[in-house]
């Protein structure tokens, strides 16, 4: 959200007002701009699209916001696969609404990233060419209906944990997009948990299906928070910029502590023999995450990487005629209106 058009120096608005535009700051002013930026960071203030910002800040945000947007769009696939097989009309309606939300979240985020001067096409091209990353979690398959519930409960639960601090991000458009997204994510998590509760009150086979889904997803969900703090070299800079408020391990710990009691109410076990309450630290200890698997998935070798990207690229090209037709229709309407006016 919040347009990039306001950032383009050649914008008609600037010609009209004669106001000089940001972006092309004379060298002498760069130091002053940097000082202003640093002071804003110190005061935990906000940066808006037109404001001066260091190139590295802009680049980091474009990368993070576009990756986030890609994750929302790719994330429509694993659940979308179950829309036609949802067990009731009620669950089908809920799932359609949820998948539509994910599409909407992608749109909020692409718009936020566009305010930084990167076009929608550049971002989509990077995704389609395999140059841009998205959350590794969406490269795992959804084998049963219980997976849909577990995605809501655990995957969206982890996403919320990660996204709530981003509502306070120093970059205004990103923070505003995140506030909107977080409001909607709560429905996602609760519908998933309630879906699982319903299954756990069902037959032994249904209960086993839930436990199996939890077993398959648990470790991948923990890995969603990213590499351990000791292996996250960019954390210090992102923290300084107010883009990252809580470290990967910090968020992971919060998630584990929040999830354990939820699993108990649900009646499932979490597949980690080392998971236990630690009285000294007043939090849960948990086992070691398989980072080799995480990196293999991030680097394109997860179970569904090729399928997800292939589906995305195909949808884009299959939809080309719709975009062309919409443009042609708009052009003809415009021409007709001008002819009538003449």
């Amino acid at each position: 959200m919040y347009t990039q058009a306001l950032d383009i120096p050649e914008g008609s608005g600037d010609a009209a007002t004669g106001l000089k535009h940001s972006g092309q700051v004379p060298a002498a002013d760069v130091a002053a701009s940097q000082a202003w930026f640093d002071a804003t960071m110190d005061a935990d203030g906000k940066i808006e699209p037109q404001d001066w910002m260091p190139e590295a800040y802009r680049k980091t945000l474009v990368r993070q916001i576009s990756q986030h947007a890609h994750s929302e769009i790719i994330g429509m696939q694993p659940e979308g696969n179950w829309i036609s097989r949802a067990p009731s009309l009620k669950r089908k309606a809920i799932l359609i609404a949820k998948v539509q939300d994910e599409g909407g979240h992608g749109l909020y985020l692409y718009s936020a990233a566009e305010t930084l001067g990167t076009s929608r096409d550049q971002m989509l091209d990077a995704l389609h060419a395999g140059k841009a990353k998205y959350s590794s979690i969406f490269n795992y398959p959804t084998l049963t209906w219980a997976d849909v519930g577990v995605i809501g409960w655990l995957v969206d639960g982890a996403a919320i944990m990660n996204q709530i601090p981003l509502c306070r991000c120093t970059y205004g458009p990103y923070a505003r997009a995140m506030i909107r997204i977080c409001k909607e994510e709560s429905f996602h998590q609760r519908q998933g948990y309630e879906n699982l509760l319903t299954m756990m009150r069902g037959t032994a086979a249904q209960q086993a299906m839930v436990q199996d889904a939890v077993n398959r997803w648990w470790w991948s969900v923990l890995a969603m928070f990213g590499p351990p703090d000791v292996d996250s070299p960019n954390t210090a800079q992102a923290t300084r910029w107010g883009i990252k408020r809580i470290s990967n391990d910090g968020l992971r710990q919060r998630f584990v502590d929040a999830t354990v009691p939820q699993a108990k109410v649900l009646g499932v076990t979490l597949p980690d023999p080392d998971l236990k309450w630690n009285d000294a630290t007043q939090q849960h200890d948990y086992g070691t995450i398989d980072w080799n698997e995480f990196w293999a998935t991030v680097n394109g070798n997860g179970p569904c990487n090729k399928e997800r990207l292939g589906t995305r690229v195909k949808a884009h090209y299959d939809g080309q005629w719709v975009r062309d037709a919409a443009l042609a229709y708009a052009a003809r309407q415009k021409a007709r209106a001008m002819k009538e006016a003449a």
Binding site: T3, A5, L6, G11, S12, G13, D14, A16, T17, L19, K20, H21, S22, V25, E48, Q50, D51, W52
Partner: peptide, 12 residues
Amino acid sequence: PSSAITASAPEN
């Protein structure tokens, strides 16, 4: 249309 918006500039 975004192009129809005239904005004041931060440096002003």
